[in-house]
């Protein structure tokens, strides 16, 4: 979300994705022969840095989206910001997809020793990735809810629909149309 000098609730710099996050994911989700050793301290440190980043990112995004939703009086810029967030979400979803879709054990109990440590690390990163994506999605939804409120304040309801007994419905959402639905 872009920062507006006048409207932003804080002037703190936005959290930065750790530069080696991608490399971290590759190491943790495809450890290969390294599986016989515990993750290196540097890997654990990178994982911690990513978790901290996600926590700060989620807090920041929630705060900014709440603030923006509270002060906005025009649905058009809100819609544009929601679209911007959607692009961010899709980009991050694509980047994280290989790691989210892969196997991550929910219950590392069967594993022992070193393998268990790797699995726990995978679970921890999975959780952080999910939180990162959800933070963007929920910020966007917050803007979309507010945008809907603003649109509905200045427009009248076109259709109140009650379907009974196998009726079918086709929706027509033309701007100039006097109706929004017809039953068949």
């Amino acid at each position: 979300m872009s920062e507006d000098q006048n409207n932003t609730p804080t002037h703190m710099p936005p959290p930065q994705l750790p530069g080696r996050a991608e490399e971290l994911f590759r190491i943790v989700f495809s450890p290969g022969p390294a599986i016989v050793h515990p993750p290196a301290p540097a890997v654990q440190a990178e994982a911690n840095a990513y978790q901290i980043y996600v926590m700060q990112f989620a807090q920041r995004l929630e705060m900014e989206s709440r603030h923006l939703a509270a002060i906005s009086r025009d649905d058009v810029p809100l819609g544009q910001k929601a679209k911007d967030l959607l692009q961010v979400e899709l980009r991050r979803k694509e980047a994280l997809a290989p790691y989210l879709a892969g196997p991550a054990p929910a219950s590392p109990a069967p594993a022992q020793g070193v393998v268990r440590i790797w699995q726990q690390l995978q679970v921890r990163l999975h959780e952080a990735m999910t939180q990162e994506l959800e933070a963007v999605r929920d910020a966007r939804l917050r803007l979309e809810v507010k945008r809907a409120e603003l649109i509905n304040q200045r427009a009248t309801v076109h259709a109140r629909i009650v379907l009974r007994g196998g009726a079918q419905i086709r929706l027509h959402f033309g701007r100039q149309a006097g109706h929004a639905a017809e039953k068949t």
Binding site: A148, E149, I151, A155, V157, A159, R160
Partner: peptide
């Protein structure tokens, strides 16, 4: 009972 609001149309 469903109500389709204008924002839904958008």
């Amino acid at each position: 009972r469903l109500e389709i609001l204008p924002s839904f149309e958008h």
